[in-house]
Amino acid sequence: MSQPAVDMQNLVKTFGGGRNLFGRAASEVHAVRGISLTLERGETLGIVGESGSGKSTLARMLVGLEHPTAGSMAIEGKPWSELAASGTRAFGRAIQYVFQDPVASLNPRKTIGDILDVPLRLLCGYDRDHRARRKQELVDAVQMPLDTLERYPHEFSGGQAQRIAIARALAAEARILVLDEPVSALDVSVQAQVLLLLQQLRDELGLSYLFISHDLAVVESISDRVAVMYLGEVVETGPAAQLFAAPQHDYTRALIASAPRLTVSDSPL
């Protein structure tokens, strides 16, 4: 029996708090309140929720950008605290992150080649020739032309930039990808293409995805299981088809009812 890719138990994150210069207690924000979730290997777990539900905070804790206030988490069987102690590189090798705004996640003053070079050099430790070969493979894997490597981020559209960001996440050869609203900033046709690419990469490379989005239909199209977050808590978890067909929690029902649909309602406007 293999371990789950990610195992979270009672994870809590509170911002603020503590005392300021004059000893007054600062206000606290409970971003994540006791979440327990598991992501199995090769699985895509969708996380839906509205703004302020704590889904991005959860994602940032997973990759080590935030420290949990309480609770425990294990990534591929290794406890979070052990990974944190050995530095960000240990995280980078196990788990990678794809940001919502692809253009903002690429340094405007570096070529794509430079950007892809960093994880290959620091996380994989490849020599120059190996790195050059890997970069070509990565660009090819995300279906971008080869001259991509010499160009700068601003020369690409949102969809192309997101492909490059995905290539960077793949470069680290991590087996788990946290995708934080990866298609929300994209046009629908581009969104569909990126979703197809993600699905193909997952099947070819055996990746596990934690797919965060506010768009129920997008989550449903790619996820095996879905967790619904509301005000820092998971209110409902279940297989994608089942959860959307027969929602148990009131909030899930409200979400589904509000989702815009293409079918024109019969009620007179």
Partner: peptide, 24 residues
């Protein structure tokens, strides 16, 4: 036609990706 086809519908599930694949 293409734009409308690219909009995922709730309840469609994994069928959506299979449906749009030929488009691209």
């Amino acid at each position: 036609r293409r734009l409308i086809a690219c909009v995922p519908e709730l309840g469609e599930g994994h069928a959506f990706l299979d449906r749009v694949r030929p488009l691209f």
